[in-house]
């Protein structure tokens, strides 16, 4: 996937958020660099939810944080409502940031264990002294009520008294109470079990409708992402592979990596034996020295010399469906035998 290009971007004026040529690198001992995000282009329209999927370590969180300027990216532009956030510094950035909020994966780490729930939720309002004290308290109560917590009981408690799902509700309340325009949700349901996951996904959809939110929703579960997103971007080792409308993208995955991700989803049906499906073998390579050309080539059954030498460029497959691959899977083409761990591992073990 490891692709470049911006064929998938819409007209610049249309989008609330437009990320251009985003690069994030972290220094790592001995003069090496972690290439966490390399040349990523993304855009999100007002009111849209963009799903960002990929394996752990592929740079999803880093992209989300770079959008928030926490920290600012190494290079590239992050246009929010037409303004380049990477140019904004100090106080101005502090003010602008309130329009972007974030919800995190780990419900434990995202709430300060020493503070009461009312203080946690009110923090954004208190920093900016929005309204009077009692107006703020009212707002916090209303928000707790909206996310399904009883403010009278919950207000004075501390985070350790809540379950993971309840902590995520509090995080959502905290993010929405300052009325942001964009929320970056970094795997908000990955730490929750299925029944709570459904509650939180429904809540996010409701909050989005009620507060006209635009969302970037990061996850590694394609079914979850499909449920909540208007558009999906698949990421691998710091680059985008495939972008499009989930209905099109899931029906005809054009990128071998997307196809592999789809087949890895556990299916609640005992007649489908998992090992009759294809699973992706091997591990994601180190971002310290990513493979040349297409970054997926070390695990891709279709890889050839072109993949080794040329970085694939994003190109349209159909309507709102774009792929960055030299040998995309044609619609209707069987991917059988393409990514088959079963065979590979059996061979390795034999």
């Amino acid at each position: 996937m490891a692709g470049i290009g911006d064929a998938h971007l819409r007209a610049p004026g249309e989008s609330l958020l437009r990320v251009e040529n985003l690069v994030v690198e972290f220094p790592s001992g001995r003069g090496q660099k972690v290439h966490a995000v390399t040349d990523v282009n993304l855009d999100v329209l007002e009111g849209e939810t963009l799903g960002l999927v990929g394996e752990s370590g592929c740079g999803k969180s880093t992209t989300g944080k770079a959008i928030m300027q926490l920290p600012s990216p190494t290079s590239g532009r992050v246009l929010f409502g037409g303004q380049d956030l990477t140019d904004v510094k100090g106080e101005d950035l502090r003010t602008l940031r309130t329009q972007l909020q974030m919800i995190f994966q780990d419900p434990i780490s995202s709430l300060n264990p020493r503070r009461r729930i009312e203080d946690i939720v009110a923090e954004g309002l208190n920093i900016w002294k929005t309204g009077t004290k009692s107006e703020r308290a009212d707002k916090v109560d209303k928000m707790l009520l909206t996310v399904g917590l009883d403010p009278k009981v919950v207000r004075g408690r501390r985070p350790h008294q809540f379950s993971g799902g309840q902590c995520q509700r509090i995080s959502i309340a905290r993010a929405v109470v300052t009325e942001p325009r964009l929320i970056v949700c970094d795997e908000p349901v990955s730490a929750l079990d299925v029944s709570v996951q459904a509650q939180i996904l429904n809540l996010l959809e409701d909050m989005k409708a009620r507060y006209q939110l635009t969302m970037v929703f990061i996850a590694h579960d394609l079914a979850v992402v499909k449920n909540i997103s208007d558009r999906v971007a698949v990421m691998y080792l710091g680059r985008l592979c495939e972008v499009g409308d989930p209905d099109l993208l899931y029906a005809n995955p054009a990128h071998p990596y997307t196809a592999a991700l789809l087949s890895a989803i556990p299916v609640a049906d005992p007649t489908v034996k998992p090992d009759q499906r294809e699973t992706l073998g091997g591990e994601i390579p180190s971002p310290l020295s990513p493979p040349s050309g297409c970054r997926f080539r070390t695990r891709c059954p279709r890889a050839d010399d072109q993949c080794r030498n040329e970085v694939p460029v994003m190109a349209q497959v159909e309507g709102d469906h774009f792929v960055a691959c030299h040998h995309p899977i044609a619609p209707g083409e069987s991917i059988e035998g393409t990514v088959n761990l079963a065979g590979a591992l059996a061979k390795a073990l034999a």
Partner: peptide, 21 residues
């Protein structure tokens, strides 16, 4: 209820999940 609460690939996007309250 557990089975119903799992989002499935076949569902259209934005299908409301049947969460266990």
């Amino acid at each position: 209820a557990l089975l119903k609460s799992i989002p499935k690939l076949e569902m259209a996007k934005h299908t409301r999940l049947e969460a266990i309250g």
